[in-house]
Amino acid sequence: MKGLRYQLKSVLHDKFCLMTFLLPIVVAVALNFVGAIDFSTLGELHFGVLKGNLPTQTVTWLERYGPVTAYPTVEELTDAIKEPSTNLIGVEADGNSIKTILSGDEMDIFRQTADTLPDLYEQRNAAGQTEVQILERPDVMAGFQDMFIAVTLIVAMFMGCTFNAMNMISEKEDGVAFINEILPMTRSQYIMQKLFVGFICGCLSSIITVCICFRLSLQNAALMLVLIVLSAFVAAMTGLFIGRASNGLMVGVVYIKIVMLLFMAVPILSFLVGISQPLLLAVCYLVPSQATFEGIMDLSTGSGTAAVKDIFILLVHCIGWFLLYIGLSMHQRKNS
């Protein structure tokens, strides 16, 4: 595999591949070192009041739960409540109590908050006397940060398909593909060379990303490495298919985008929707990144044993796609 050195050189000189390699690493750094994505501020309550309408103590009471903005006119308050990008709860005086105003398109959390706010106001004096025990949150990443990091890692692992696909497409465009046909290189040598390019780049990008994002125990680190290796192999296989199917750079880029979209969308959707139906889950597992995603999520919460199932699914993918490629190659050779 002496030629592999030059294949890797060719890939690393490709700015597109270089950017693909660095992108997940940059995102991982941004997610980890710039600061955690604080979704708690995004769910914070925000109140809007009419200037001079509520007593100062009421505004102070509201400020216990979230920022209060005073609007000079009813129209401005109404517009702010109706503004779709915020979930402002309008609060107005109602005799000795308060009434709340919403636009009606808010999520349940804000609707229920608005519905119960007058009750809280009535009971405000009694509330301070109860004993409250606040526990420290367990060492799991907050909110959707798990998902963001898992998706970044999936991008790192499965972007391996880009490297060897672009390598193969460039060869076709430059005419090197014709030269390959008259070289004393066997078909299997060619496949191994191309696979290795995508595999090594995908693995490297993923390992660096994992080192940035995770602090794992030795056992879980070993399982993560297995996950990376298997995912990068499947990605490299995908790259082989894309490189083979594309007759030009533009078509290749479109295929890569479709594949990456699928690899990212399926795990994200199943995570957010929460698929429990076995048949639907099995369909999701047809996409290799689903198993990878679940494996990463399991390892990030420390449950390494659950990740073993995902590793097994990935192994099946590796063998399956490899056999499919070999089968297709042999079939094509027979026909030609």
């Binding site: 409540i81 636009s103 398109d105 519905d115 007058p118």
Partner: peptide
């Protein structure tokens, strides 16, 4: 108690 609704869209809309 239900909050007063002044908009025209439901959460789904």
């Amino acid at each position: 108690y239900s909050a007063e609704l002044i908009g025209s869209n439901t959460p789904e809309q």
